[in-house]
Each structure stands twice: as C-alpha cells, then as structure tokens.
Nucleic acid binder design. Structure first.
Lengths: 335, 335
DNA sequence: ATGAAAGCGCTAACAG
DNA sequence: CTGTTAGCGCTTTCAT
C-alpha cells in the first residue's frame, strides 16, 4: 500500500480511502491510484484489514453434518447468500455432538470470524448461558428458545397441516404420518409437523388414529422409511395417503410401496418435506415441501451482518416461507 | 495480553512465549501466567495473531457443489481432517463455473487463508498460469496436470478394473458399463474408469462390445441411470452384470431394474463407485467402491500444512487407496 | 530464562 | 479533498 501511494503520488490514507469508496475524492486522484494499483498488482491484505477494522469478512456456520443432504443443501445456500454480500463461510461440522457445538461457540471468543450461524441439536438448556455474549449469533431451528439471539424458523406446523389438507382434498380416506410423534412437549420438527397433521384431520372432522402415526426408531434414513412401511402393513394398516417426515424417509417409503406393488399415486399418495435435489429424480418424482432454504439462508446471513454493525440482536423469530412442490407421487388437485 | 502480563507480573512477551509453548521457562512463571489467563478469561485474538505470524489457521476448499453428495461427503472429511490439525475450512462452492473457480484462486492473493484445496472442473489449460504462485495449493482429481502443485488422485483405472474383475469372477457373462466413455483422450474419471473396465475384459480374453458401454447424457443423476437402463433394454441389450459410473447413477439403475422385475443380484449384479452414505440404505444395498475419502482428505490437508511451512510443493501425485464394499447388489465371491 | 522494542499492513480520527 | 498520526493485539528478533 506504501508502494501504491508512492507511485500514485498520494498518501497512504488516500489509497485506503479510495479502496473504501470514500465519496469526496477527485476523479483524477482516483485514476492515479487505480493505475498504481494495476501497475503493481496490489491486493489488500485481509489479515491486516481485519485486525484493524475488527471485521474478518467471515461467518462461521455450525451444522451437524454435511453428509445429511438437507444440511448440505442448506449450507450451499448459505454460502451463496454470504458470497452475494461479500462474505465467506467457515463450516464447522459438529456431528450432533454437544462438545463440538460448544467448541464452535467458544471459538467465537477468538474472533476468527464475525458471527455464528448455528443449528443447535445436541446442546442443552444448561448451555444457554454460554450463548450470551456480544458476538453476532443466529440460531437455526426451534431448539433453545431462551437464547438472546434471533431464530430462523420453518413453519413446521403449517407444513404438516398443508400437506395433510392436500391429501384430504385429493380424496384420501386413511392418511398416515410416517416419522411423526404424537405425544411430546419437546418442540422438535417431528412433533410440530405431526401437530399440523392432527390439526388438519380435526379441522376436517376426522379421527386421529394413533396406529397411523408411526414414529422413527433411529435416524431419518430411507432404510427407516422402508421399515416403517413394512411394519405398518404387517399390522394390517393400509393408508391411501402418506405424509413423510422427510424426503430421505419418503425415498424408502416409496421404494418399499413399489416393492409391494402398490401404485403411486393411484393406490397411495405420498408427500414429504425437504425438497431435496434428488426428489425430482426418483420414480415417481416426489411431491415435497420446499422449506425456503434460500430464504432461510438470506435471513440468517442478513441478520448476522446487521448484528455485525449494531451488536447482538435480541431474541426473535424469523420465518421462512414454504411451498409445496407438486410432483408425480401426489399431483396437485384442482380446487 | 497486556492485562495478563501485568497480573502475572511478567512481560507481555513471556505470555506470548508461554502460549507458544516456549521450552525454556520456569514452571513457576508458567503457573503465574496460567493463573492470570484463567482469572481474566483471556483468549488470543486470532486476527492479530495471523497478521503478525502470517498464518490464519484456515484453508480454503473450493468444490463444485455441496448439493452433490460425493463432494459434500468429501468436504465433511476434509473439515474433520483439518480440525484434527487445528485448522478450519472455508468452503467456496464454485457451481462448476470457471469464473468462480478463478475467483477462489484470486482470493488467495488476499491472504485470507493459508492455502487452497481445489477441485478444478471448469478451468481450462489456459488458466494454468494463474495457479502459479507461492501459496500452498493442492488439486483434487486428474484435471490440469501441468500445474506446479501436488495432485491428490483416485485410482480410477484400477477401480474400474477391479469391479469388472469382480463381476467376471462372479460369473457374469455380459457386463455393461453405465456412464462410461470409450473413446476420448481427456483423462476424466469416466474415461479412466471405462479404461479399467476394458482392461479387465481384455485380460479375461473377452470382447469389448460398444453397445454395452452407455454414456451419460447430462449430469450423473439417478434419473440418468433410469434412462440409461430404459434405453439399453429397449435396444435389446441385457447384461447380467453392470458397473455404474457412480452411486447416484446406480441408484437409478437399481430402481429401474427392479421396476422391470429384474432380480438383483440373481439376474443382474450391480456394482458402483463412491460409497455414498445412502448406498447402505437402498434396497438391495449397493456394492460400491470407497474411494478413500478420508485418506484423500488427510493427504490434501497434510500437503497444505507442509507447504505452509516449506513453500509451494512441486507437481506430484498422491494416491488414495480404494476398497470395494460388498453388499447385497453383488456379494463378494469366494475365490 | 525473561524483557524491550519494533513492527505485521491496514483503518480511522482528525487536522489541514 | 488529502495527509498525518496513532494504533489494532500479537510475534519475534535481540538484548540482558
């Protein structure tokens, strides 16, 4: 920068001003500086800039695992949203471990990044005090509500309700929820989505039959979807409409139903949530809810950037819009 | 740090020495410093450290897309490998675009990270000069060989050969390669894997029948796999063994074969490459090659760290070991 | 075995 | 509109 200043015949601070788009500057001066920059191939050293300015241009993203397609696709959107704003994303994969989640919070004190977007899945209420602090923070999902920071949320209840309403409108008589949880006071995605399912049934004056709500045993994989269908059918439960907790589960559900020669959507309609890339490519393609990942990404990044300027934002809820993407497994019905 | 020094009754540089594990230091001094650090809750400011030391503790990872499961899972391993060495990973998703790939190279001049691990898929030979420079660099994959930097590679030819040999040993008479490319001088993964397939057939004294090598039209999705099978069967080509270019393609291949009531592995054995997480969960589970993602990750990160110390390494090839993971779609055969 | 001093390269008041 | 000045918080010789 010294060299640029010398070559341009100006002071070092004019160069700095130029780089910062300082408005009051003679065009001729600008031009000289630009020429010197080009001649020397100068690029600013981000390390020095960040020490002095207090900003790194980086945001930490702490998510459970990139191996889970939903998180990978969300990360992709967050990277894109950050880049549009001139920011970079440092990814920390926490593997559903409380220790790693806490580690990524602790790392904020080291000021290697300007803020943290995190999906706290393993942290406990007792860890909430550690999330206090001045650093910009955004939480993804409905856990840990008492943290003094904004939460970016998905309309889980409404999504469950909308999908169920769609199946009702399509004429389904017996609607199952695979991967749901009926009784619980923990506000997990499963519970909330199931709540929406129940609301829709009740609004339609239908009974909620517990044998139609099948809870996942382990992780939400397609194998789990296969098993859920096997067990349900073995018990003689035969729905003509199925809401799946997630696309991964739905992939297994669809596969197993076809295996059993059930026609989709003719015999059974299948709908799901996540709208993974792969949902377009299955046979049949899968009707699924786009949870607004792009919007989630933008809300989260924008909130961080705002907090960088104005300090930690208070607790609050930012909701993303969802959309049912109708595909072959359950086409839209004309209203 | 000032405060810590004052409280411990030592100089600021002793604190720095302590933090750097300087060996010649009285235990009592160390203890005082540690007490002061604990009392004040001091943590080093990484920004200042990196300005002075020239190291950021971050590595850039430039890959096409996290939406592609293979890259997402590779990224996961690289993040883990970096973390084990105290490093963080900044992910840049280039979306197969040459401009974004070049941007992530250009960003290195800004010194926001210590090195770059990149998968150059869209860059051209004419861009090679831009990859010259002093910054630590590791290339993933077989493209752009004339770059003066180490390449981390997968034994593509051998993998294609080993899978084909396995099918031959299993008694398959008619072996197809779905997603292969027979004629080409570009050393892409498709071409190399197909070359291995050809080698195995020739070694077994079998003819290479061009109608058995089906080239993908668009991206390697499961939908493409479905279409490949449809077209092949429509042409009357009916293999009893299938090597798929990747797991994603294989998912579609398996789905379509079952759709056509072909039994796997009884009528047709199916093998593939990538060993995605999902390969264990399909029906039947998929025999697939683990390309040694973990080793790829460690080789790449270690090379970067070595280059951080010793400067850009010369061109060279680092190979990861592969392993066939036998599953239901083609169980191992007793030799 | 410890301390003093000199910056790393840049930004941000503030003065002119 | 441009230049001077004073550091950001740490590491790193080099003395002692």
């Amino acid at each position: 920068m010294q060299d640029v200043a010398r070559l341009a015949g100006v002071s070092i601070s004019s160069v700095s001003n130029y780089l910062a788009d300082y408005p009051y500057m003679k065009p001729i001066t600008k031009q000289h500086i630009q020429e010197a920059i080009d001649a020397l191939g100068y690029v600013t050293n981000e390390r020095a800039r960040s020490l002095r300015s207090g900003r790194t241009g980086l945001i930490s993203l702490s998510i459970p695992s990139l191996t889970q397609a939903y998180f990978a696709e969300l990360a992709e959107e967050i990277i894109a949203a950050a880049r549009r704003r001139g920011y970079g994303i440092l990814i920390e994969s926490t593997g559903f471990s409380r220790d790693w989640e806490l580690a990524s919070v602790a790392a904020m004190a080291r000021r290697a990044t300007d803020g943290l977007i995190m999906s706290p899945l393993a942290m406990e209420d007792s860890d909430i005090p550690r999330l206090r602090g001045e650093f910009p923070l955004v939480l993804l999902g409905e856990r840990l509500f008492d943290v003094p920071a904004p939460h970016v949320l998905v309309h889980n209840v409404e999504v469950g309700r909308a999908l169920t309403e769609h199946l009702i409108a399509a004429g389904c008589e017996t609607i199952a929820f695979l991967g749901g949880v009926l009784e619980s006071n923990h506000p997990s995605a499963e519970v909330l989505r199931t709540k929406g399912y129940v609301q829709a049934l009740e609004a339609a004056g239908r009974p909620v039959r517990p044998e139609l709500v099948r809870t996942l045993v382990g992780e939400a994989t397609s194998r789990a979807g296969v098993e859920l269908v096997e067990r349900m059918v073995a018990e003689g439960v035969k729905p003509d409409g199925v809401v799946c907790y997630s696309d991964l589960v739905a992939f297994g559900v669809v596969r197993q139903l076809r295996e059993m020669r059930v026609r989709i959507p003719d015999d059974v309609r299948v709908v799901s949530i996540d709208n993974l890339d792969e949902a377009q490519y299955t046979m049949p393609s899968l009707t699924s809810v786009e949870l607004g990942r792009r919007q989630i990404a933008e809300l989260a990044v924008d909130s961080i950037l705002k907090q960088v300027k104005e300090g930690r934002a208070p607790a609050g809820e930012l909701y993303a819009d969802y959309e049912i993407m109708y595909r072959e497994s359950s086409p839209a019905v004309g209203s």
